[in-house]
Design a binder for these strands. Structure first.
Lengths: 191, 191
DNA sequence: GGCATTTTGTAATGAACACTACAAAAAAAT
DNA sequence: ATTTTTTTGTAGTGTTCATTACAAAATGCC
């Protein structure tokens, strides 16, 4: 039976997320993916290529969940809050059991060692910044935010705050230790 | 000649920082440390024990540089800014060439896999939060901040903002892309 | 100076690593 | 139905891994 490539790739994300690139063996990967190593090499190329594909998949899907929350909530302050809450929830209660964020908590480690990783990280950051800023620009066009509202800087601010939550979650801190100041943070973003 | 244990440990930090725990071989470590493997095992125990000691050393020394900047600057707003600038500088221009922060960019990855790491990370975070909060409490006692100023929450905010810069630095983004909004961030920390 | 300890230098150990080979079975394509 | 492609299942390859052994040299301690 031909295996479901996307399902296998998602399984690979979860292994890399739990163990990092060097800590995840091809045996770990093939077991989680439910395929044999010749199939892994046949379809994905090699371990590093699989890793790059895993990063791309994560960056274009999972990492976007808080973005989607931000984009779909109609009122902007509620949208900022939704982003933060989604990010915290995602980092503390992922269905795979992994904590933090694959990109920040694992892929970062290999940025200087595995060729091709750093550009992907940079791209993911820049695209997230841009996507967050685009929502702010929409609010400005509607007159809900001032014309001189610094969309990109506030987008970066939201992204940076998320990284703090991610690190805390990875270190095992409780969700509720991260939710006490969200009102202030939302105000900070929209000030 | 007996080797300098602290110098060797610092060299180990730099290797682990560049390659992560699994990516750093004992050969890499002994070469950088300038000792032979029986000495590494004799003095430090084994690779994992060395790693834990490297984390502790980093957490009690290097990770503290922005804290020291925050604690030594007499005026509180300038102190907050000094923290941010020191954190950015540290993450982008470390003398070893490493980018980001050892704890966030590398140690995080092994949090769920290497026994003993997660408690150290948690401790480092909590101690940093407390140390930042202590400076705020001092300012409150002096009457420079309001009595109801939420020291711990703002300490956490500063720490979380730092994580954003750390991730960007690790991904290779330029220092100047991170410094455009510091005024706003300082204001929000003290609001 | 003599003895004890540490370090060097080197080699070895057993296991694990990423990746490939290949025949048979299964699935997909025609 | 036949042919082609993919996958399974298994084993093998050469290298690397963390760690230990051990003799000789160097250093530290009394």
């Amino acid at each position: 039976m031909a295996f479901d490539v996307d399902e296998a790739l998602l399984a690979a994300v979860n292994v890399f997320w739990a163990k990092g690139y060097d800590g995840a063996s091809v045996k770990d990967l093939t077991e989680a993916m439910g395929i044999n190593s010749p199939s892994l090499y046949g379809v994905f190329g090699d371990k590093r290529s699989l890793y790059l594909k895993a990063i791309e998949r994560y960056a274009s899907n999972d990492a976007c969940a808080p973005l989607v929350a931000f984009e779909t909530e109609p009122e902007i302050a509620a949208a900022v809050r939704a982003f933060m809450e989604a990010a915290i929830g995602y980092a503390t209660e992922h269905e795979s059991g992994a904590r933090g964020c694959f990109l920040t908590s694992c892929v970062s480690t290999s940025a200087g060692e595995v060729e091709g990783v750093e550009p992907l990280l940079r791209q993911a950051i820049e695209e997230t910044d841009a996507r967050l800023a685009a929502r702010f620009d929409k609010e400005k066009a509607k007159g809900c935010l001032p014309e001189d509202f610094p969309s990109l800087e506030r987008a970066k601010l939201m992204f940076d705050l998320r990284q703090g939550h991610v690190f805390r979650a990875r270190a095992g801190l409780e969700r509720k230790s991260m939710t006490g100041d969200l009102d202030h943070r939302v105000r900070m973003v929209l000030a």
